[in-house]
Design a protein around this nucleic acid. Structure first.
Length: 104
DNA sequence: TGTCCGCGGGTGT
DNA sequence: ACACCCGCGGACA
C-alpha cells in the first residue's frame, strides 16, 4: 500500500513543510538552532517563523522538533512552554548516541 | 539576568 | 489591507 502525504491535509504552508522536512535531517543526538533551520529554508532571519512552524508539527515524535534550540544555548520553547521535557529528550538521545559510538 | 526592538511568516477580520 | 501574534536573535545595561 502506498502512502502519500497530501500537504494540504494538515493545513500547513509551503514554508512550514520546508521547515519540518529540514528538521527531519537533523541527526539523532545532535541539535541545530532556529536560525540554522531558517537559513536552510532560504529565509535567514525568519527564525521566529521557524518556531511557529515547529509548534504546528503534525507528527510529534517523528519529526524531531526537540532538536531545534536557541542560539544562546537555552532550549527554547516546547509543547506549550515546558523546556524540561525537551532537555530530557536531548539528554537521552545524546547518551544513547554515545553508547552507539563506543560499540561501533 | 532582564529588557528592548527588529525581524519574517502566519492568522484573523 | 491591516493588526496582531510568535517555540527567535542580537544588543545593551
Amino acid at each position: 500500500m502506498q502512502i502519500t502525504i497530501h500537504e494540504h491535509t494538515a493545513r500547513l504552508t509551503a514554508f512550514q513543510w520546508k521547515v519540518l522536512k529540514i528538521a527531519l535531517t537533523i541527526p539523532f543526538g545532535e541539535t541545530r538552532t532556529y536560525q540554522w533551520v531558517a537559513k536552510q529554508a532560504g529565509s535567514p532571519g525568519a527564525s521566529r517563523a521557524v518556531g511557529q512552524a515547529l509548534r504546528r508539527n503534525p507528527y510529534p515524535g517523528i519529526i524531531p522538533c526537540h532538536r531545534v534550540v536557541k542560539s544562546d544555548g537555552t532550549p527554547g520553547g516546547y509543547e506549550g512552554g515546558s523546556p524540561k521535557r525537551k532537555l530530557a529528550l536531548l539528554a537521552i538521545e545524546q547518551k544513547i548516541a554515545g553508547q552507539m559510538r563506543s560499540h561501533h
